[in-house]
Design a protein around this nucleic acid. Structure first.
Length: 637
RNA sequence: GCCGAAGUAGCUCAGCGGUAGAGCAACUGAUUCGUAAUCAGUAGGCCCCCGGUUCAAAUCCGGGCUUCGGCACCA
């Protein structure tokens, strides 16, 4: 007797082992038709999996949140089948489901062309129409290797070799196509439906290693129905309109040009925004008991040899040789400079923790393919700081930094910041004991605050473990913004010390932290986050005073002057244009506040205030408008 | 850096061997108007750069630069 507990708590009993499909059938014909897979004790399995013990089982249908994952994984297989039919010389490698879609990596002598995509997609729809049964088979390891080698599928054979011993080797067969896969899969290709689309071609290294062959990757998106697919595609189009590169141009914030790849030309409006962020951060840091310093942009190569940057990042550093043959480096990091300031004069434990901030502009020769608008540039400004503290202070200091970051992000409306913890990388400096200490301090800090975090093994900085605070751009790409690193290595290499209570010299712990991270990147994130419609305190141009007729020109100038005296960024629009035209133009330019003045306002000392996106306006006395606007335009405290 | 694609007016794009085009923006003139596009006119181009093929190249070929989509990288 097998007792199967369903999600609603009801129990079904069977005399013999029963397949998921039969279980669904026993519950109802409609459910059997909608069934895609089953979940046994929380794990997704094929629908025809035999259930041979007492357990809890859920039938997975298209309504299930995991159904899309299943669907997308199948879409990858159907795509691989289509490719093998059309281009038999192609080898298949791996093809997982991913967020919003799927991809499959293929190995072939010549790349796919954009035209191939349409052909492959058409063949995929044929395969869906064929409704091929998808059947799982468990194979002997050696036979499976021989089978794939026989097909010329060397990558598949290699993958089998890397599957841990003891794990079953499962092959999924659909029509004439057989793929090595751990599953689970839909019962047949017809269940995939037609709500999918191939989206882009790309190169991708085998096993993600740039020393390996470059494979041809095809990306696609797949959904439960056409409506979802359309909604997704529309969402992508909308997201494109928020792209900071596009808005940066349209709003006249900044530009790039060929002579300075990866370096920003900030225009007046963009620079205003940039400076607003620095002003805000400076205020927050001062309140958090930081001091601010500034250190040289160019320092002798020896400085970077001591820090270890030269050995690790030499090819990504800008260098310059002077007439006397000295090699200087344009700083890629601020830390060595900060350390020199700390080292001036003997420090006492009483002065710790010492929090030294620096808005430092750094240059890094990033790989050309990495450049991406403001998000990844070769010259950028960090809101950097180095906190020198005693070992017993480091955990508490970490917590203070983390809570400052989260608090500051909240001011910009980022509530769900993803945190990643990265531990020791292969290429690193310092002893394992030091890494043990710094890793556990950082980890304890974030855990004791009850924050969720993910782990990136081996992704730490070469001198210490780090926390990354990740924000997402308009089209779903993740960018590291804030970071906190714990470092016992650089203080040792630079021979940094303070005098402890015991009168002896001790090495301080150094925390490297940046909250925005790169001001350039954070600005890019904000442009996309707000879709260019900045809150009043950040808007480069806060108010436009627009006239209806020339009779109001003098009053408009007075209004603008009064606003300017209150520190509001204001312009007048006295052009001989209809008010409709002006309203539209400044709305498109995303100016948050428009003060419209005509004869009536001029005579009564009033303004008609119109907010961006608003339908109506509010007529109020100038002094009331001044009070309202200056309080609204104040940065968050 | 690697794979693929693209660079034509300020922007979006058409033209793909034979005198460089459109829409929007800009500029000029008229209109003085009450909350998202007034009308008319004018001007605007090393067709990314360097070579080659050709009677003739924006167009074909080669090299380079930059950008875009991924991969790799990200102190």
């Amino acid at each position: 007797m097998i007792r199967i507990t369903l999600p609603d708590g009801s129990v079904r009993e069977f005399e013999q082992p029963v397949s998921g499909a039969a279980l669904a059938q026993s519950i109802g014909a409609g459910l059997a038709k909608a069934a895609l897979a089953i979940r046994i004790d929380g794990t997704m399995r094929d629908l025809d999996t035999m259930i041979d013990r007492d357990t809890r089982v859920a039938i997975v249908t298209t309504k299930d949140p995991d159904a899309l994952d299943l669907l997308r994984h199948d879409a990858a297989h159907v795509m691989a089948e289509a490719v093998k039919e059309l281009f038999p010389e192609t080898q298949v490698t791996i093809g997982p489901s991913i967020e919003n879609g799927f991809y499959y990596d293929f190995s072939r002598p010549t790349p796919f062309t954009p035209e191939d995509l349409a052909v492959i997609e058409a063949r995929m729809r044929e395969i869906v129409a064929r409704d091929e049964k998808i059947v799982v088979e468990t194979w002997d390891r050696d036979e499976a290797v021989a089978f794939f080698l026989g097909l010329g599928e060397t990558y598949k054979a290699e993958i089998i070799g890397s599957i841990p011993a003891g794990q079953p080797i499962t092959l999924y067969r659909q029509g004439a196509f057989v793929d090595l896969c751990r599953g689970p899969h839909l019962p047949s290709t017809g269940k995939l439906g037609n709500a999918f689309k191939l989206t882009k071609l790309a190169g991708a290294y085998w096993r993600g290693d740039s020393r390996n062959e470059m494979l041809q990757r095809i990306y696609g998106t797949a959904w439960g129905d056409q409506k979802q697919l359309d909604a997704y595609l529309t969402m992508l189009e909308e997201a494109e309109k928020r792209d900071h590169r596009r808005l940066g141009r349209e709003m006249g914030l900044f530009h790039f040009q060929e002579e300075a790849p990866g370096a920003v030309f900030w225009h007046p409006k963009g620079w205003t925004l940039f400076q607003c962020l620095i002003d805000y951060m400076r205020k927050r840091q001062n309140a958090a008991d930081y001091v601010e310093i500034n250190t040289p942009e160019v320092m002798d190569r020896s400085m970077w040899e001591t820090s270890g940057h030269w050995q690790t990042f030499r090819e990504h550093m800008y260098t310059t040789e002077t007439e006397d043959k000295r090699v200087f480096c344009i700083k890629p990091m601020n830390c060595p400079g900060g350390i020199q300031v700390f080292k001036q004069g003997l420090k006492s434990y009483r002065e710790l923790p010492m929090r030294m901030a620096e808005f430092g502009k750094v240059h890094r020769y990033e790989p050309s393919g990495a450049l991406h608008g403001l998000m990844r540039v070769r010259a950028f400004t960090q809101d950097d700081a180095h906190i020198f503290c005693a070992p017993e202070q480091m955990e508490a200091e970490c917590r203070i930094v983390v809570s400052l970051i989260m608090d500051i992000y909240r001011d910009f409306g980022f509530e769900n910041v993803r945190i990643k913890f990265s531990d020791r990388p292969e290429k690193r400096i310092g002893s394992d004991e030091i890494w043990d200490t710094t890793e556990s301090a950082l980890r304890n800090a974030v855990e004791s605050m009850g924050l969720e975090y993910g782990v990136n093994p081996g992704e730490g900085a070469f001198y210490g473990p780090k926390l990354e605070f990740v924000l997402r751009d308009a089209i779903g790409r993740d960018w590291q913004c804030g970071t906190l690193q714990v470092d016992l290595n650089l203080p040792a290499r630079f021979d940094v010390a303070y005098v402890g209570e015991d009168g002896q010299r001790h090495a301080p712990v150094m925390l490297h932290r940046a909250l925005f991270g790169s001001l350039e990147r954070f600005t890019g994130i904000l442009i996309e986050h707000y879709a260019g419609k900045f809150p009043l305190w950040l808007a480069p141009l806060q108010v436009v005073v627009a006239t209806i007729t020339q009779d109001a020109d003098a009053w408009a100038r007075d209004v603008a002057a009064a606003l300017r005296a209150r520190g509001i960024r204001v312009e007048t629009d006295l052009r001989n244009e209809k008010i409709n035209y002006k309203v539209r133009e400044h709305s498109v330019a995303k100016v948050p506040i428009m003060l419209v003045v005509g004869k009536r306002e001029a005579e009564t000392g009033a303004v008609a205030m119109r907010r961006l996106g608003g339908k109506d306006q509010e007529v109020l006395a100038l002094r009331d408008a001044l009070d309202t606007l200056s309080s609204e335009a104040a940065p968050p405290a």
